[in-house]
Design a protein around this nucleic acid. Structure first.
Lengths: 352, 352
DNA sequence: GACGAGTTGTAGAACGTTCTCCATATAACG
DNA sequence: CGTTATATGGAGAACGTTCTACAACTCGTC
């Protein structure tokens, strides 16, 4: 009320918790209590404070919150923003988060381990409340080390033995089996898989899981003990080259299971260009059931794992962990087949 | 056990600036100076401190930094993560940021003004150093209000009169003109545009700009003073419905310019299903030159605006603004045509 | 030797929250 | 009326940085 007070208001025009406290005629601690709806607040006080908050349009500073307590933000780490499967996961996360007071911040690692590490560290340094890592590249021990500092749920990361963090996956082994079974049911016997040729592909990755499922289903179907699995490079000039080579092989198989729609669609495209008829000369089945696969022009049969659902489940798991759960959870979803013309002329879509 | 507890004032094992200071035998302020490489540090001191930082694997807390000074993070706001054009922008941003000490955090607004506002506020509350807003929905006055609190660069937002923030755009009017000119050059005269039917579509949006360019080029080509512009709803059941209706019109035009590849590709797909031959019955030209458009199966002619480049330019502009520039900049890029089979049989791709 | 100028390092006050005590007021009980 | 329990509000110490003063020391220079 004295001269000092008169001189102070000229500072910053940011509305802080102190501004609210002054406006409501209560202490800073009281305002904080109301915000966190902590114990020991009378209805009258609560009303007065919420009114002031409203009137001043006060928003707590996330930075300051993070310094002391929770920041009400969860970090999402994406390996690659181009894969059309990932937006679905985000949609699922945002859907669950929307009605809550949490918000998602996304980091994109471009599949570089270096960047992945530094993004995770940044998110920890921001004191985010939890992390959803989508198909991370880092080994399990490292993730476990991070998980000590912050709740973590890994999506598309097969490590059911992890105790420090949760995992949410579609059953990729089963998905591959379903694909093979569908091909067998259509009468194809000469089947190969086209997988991803990555250097750092560890056993926990979805790709390796799909390979395992592929092998098992092939053996179970009596098609040899070590079925052929071709590797497609990631980067662009070599990628198409490898596919063309595959398509022009004289001993090209009759059907192919492709690890991802991303590659399956390009394969379909190149097949058309090279005059290889689908499905008459080559049946193709992809993975992810991406929007593009559903296009009439493309009409690619694919294994559907609902990215949206994966995102939702992961978010719920993360929140429960943030709120105190310590035992780790490992959740599986069962994928399903979406049949289309690339599998057989009587797919579920238009056939001309 | 209890003794250990007593002796454990070491509390959390987090390495802070204080830990480093103790380890190096200097003051906290000295460490801070080295970090910020501020004036008044001897080589000897610097060496000692950097050694300690290295030895302790110290990372400054972003939360604490944000509370006081810069946080070395820039926020990117995406309207919609599904549009394949946006990942390109992100790639551009990350490319420029990678060698610097800045990092990008992404928020997804799903085109909801409410969420857009709250994400921007959150990013401000995190004391991020700057914001890149991609195709924001908020009106210019509101953005200007935010821009007082934080440096802002808007991408895909046509408001060259804004003084509070920068804009980076492809020249969408010109892009539409190029599309029309290409159609004219192929001999088509009966041309319509398919645009986006959005309620809140304000004049600054790229869509409206493309409409303006379309009209101007049509008039210039002597094709009427108010050429037809159809509107396609965003949401999924009505969207396809509107396209089918368009395709089955008896007075269907001979050529169509579509505001986005997203819709153009679906249109192509539906055209095939309905037996409308492209380009023989209907020529189509899209916008964005998305990866899918380039597929042999799709072969969609499209206007290319390099999203990557847009992202790069925007990031550089933002950094220069963070580092002190106050005069606003409004940058334009010129788009170009990528001709493919949907425009004419002699597109630049395979024609059989 | 006194004085300024320059250089190098430090103390300590912010920043805006959370949250643990602690003080006070009121109610309950004997 | 004491005494004790219980409900309510507040003081103030963190949290980990940044950054402004300022202290201390070294050189020249007059």
């Amino acid at each position: 009320m004295s001269i000092e007070d008169k001189q102070k208001p000229q500072r910053n025009d940011r509305v802080t918790i102190r501004t609210v406290a002054t406006h409501a005629g209560v202490s800073v601690a009281a305002v904080s209590k109301v915000m966190r709806n902590a114990y020991g607040v009378s209805d009258a006080l609560r009303a007065r404070v919420t009114d002031s908050i409203e009137a001043l349009a006060y928003r707590p500073s996330r930075a300051a919150r993070g310094l002391r307590g929770r920041s009400f933000t969860i970090g999402v780490l994406l390996i690659d923003i181009r894969n059309p499967f990932l937006p679905e996961v985000i949609a699922g996360v945002n859907g669950v988060l929307a009605p809550s007071h949490y918000q998602a911040m996304i980091g994109v690692s471009d599949a570089r381990v270096q960047l992945e590490t530094s993004l995770i560290e940044s998110m920890i340094d921001y004191k985010m409340d939890g992390l959803i890592l989508v198909a991370p590249r880092l080994p399990s021990e490292i993730l476990a080390k991070f998980a000590v500092q912050i709740p973590i749920v890994a999506v598309g990361y097969h490590d059911a033995s992890a105790t420090a963090f949760d995992t949410v996956n579609a059953d990729d082994q089963r998905g591959a089996e379903i694909a093979v079974e569908a091909l067998l049911a259509c009468g194809y016997r000469d089947i190969e898989m086209l997988s991803l040729g990555e250097r750092q592909g560890h056993a926990v990755s979805v790709v390796r899981q799909r390979e395992i499922g592929f092998r098992r289903a092939m053996q179970r179907g009596g098609l040899g003990s070590s079925p052929a699995i071709g590797k497609i490079p990631i980067a662009s000039p070599k990628r198409e080259e490898a596919m063309r080579k595959f398509l022009s092989r004289k001993d090209r198989p009759r059907a192919v299971f492709c690890w991802s729609d991303l590659d399956a669609i390009t394969l379909l495209s190149l097949a058309m260009e090279m005059g290889v008829r689908v499905p008459d000369d080559l049946a193709v089945i992809g993975y992810d059931n991406s929007p593009t696969a559903a296009l009439g022009l493309v009409n690619l049969a694919s294994i559907d794992q609902s990215g949206r659902e994966l995102g939702q489940v992961a978010t719920r798991a993360l929140i429960s962990r943030i709120e105190g759960r310590t035992a780790s959870e490992h959740i599986f979803q069962i994928p399903s087949l979406v049949s289309r013309n690339s599998l057989t002329r009587s797919g579920n879509s238009t056939d001309r």
